[in-house]
């Protein structure tokens, strides 16, 4: 663990909490893309399957459980509890256009052709583009609420901080994972591009 990874994880945690609190306090999920949240739930589910096979640390286990639980809680709020406030007319991104290419790419480019490894790789590829339905929705409606911008900023910072973490780990442990690094850079560029435009 280093400072970049810890602050990255905390930014990720903060983003999720901002989103949940926003929906809960305003009793509304207006402006939030349910499609992006579906993609994040798929990302966490396919990445954290190793929760039952591999133990890393209490921190690792607790964070994984939190990310899984919060992503399903967010889906529950959007699609069931506050369904009436969900802006589905503006949430029209076709997620199969992200899921299928990410899956095919995971089958072709991975570290090992095993069930867990391919799904882990798929989750990395899918995460890098999972925010697109949300960015598409913001660009369609013209403006994001400030709280939605805070959410996007915290979520974007997380992968940017992970890039610093990967540089640090390369320097100190000579450890690197090209799949995570390339996908992480793509992900960060998408967020930067969005913040540059808006």
């Amino acid at each position: 663990m280093n400072i970049f990874r810890l602050t990255g994880d905390l930014a990720h945690l903060l983003a999720i909490i901002i989103l949940l609190l926003k929906i809960w306090k305003t009793r509304s999920c207006a402006g939030i893309s349910g499609k992006s949240q579906i993609l994040f739930a798929i990302v966490y589910t396919t990445r954290y399957l190793d929760l039952v096979t591999t133990y890393v640390s209490a921190y690792n286990t607790l964070m994984k459980i939190f990310f899984l639980a919060s992503s399903y809680a967010t889906l529950y709020l959007i699609y069931i509890k506050f369904k009436a406030t969900y802006d589905h007319n503006h949430d029209t991104f076709r997620i199969e256009f992200l899921i299928l290419p990410a899956f095919i790419l995971a089958l072709l480019i991975n570290h090992a052709f095993t069930f867990l490894e391919v799904l882990w790789t798929f989750s990395i590829y899918l995460e890098s583009v999972a925010i697109l339905p949300q960015l598409f929705m913001v660009s369609k409606t013209g403006e994001a609420e400030s709280i939605t911008s805070h959410y996007l900023f915290a979520l974007g910072s997380y992968r940017a901080l992970y890039i610093l973490n990967w540089i640090y780990r390369y320097a100190t442990e000579v450890h690197y994972d090209l799949i995570a690094i390339v996908a992480g850079i793509v992900q960060t560029v998408l967020y930067c591009d969005f913040f540059y435009l808006y």
């Binding site: 190793d50 890393v56 640390s57 964070m63 570290h111 690197y176 994972d177």
Partner: peptide
Amino acid sequence: ERKLEKKDEL
């Protein structure tokens, strides 16, 4: 490239 045996990142 030395891939992690255990994936310790989130």
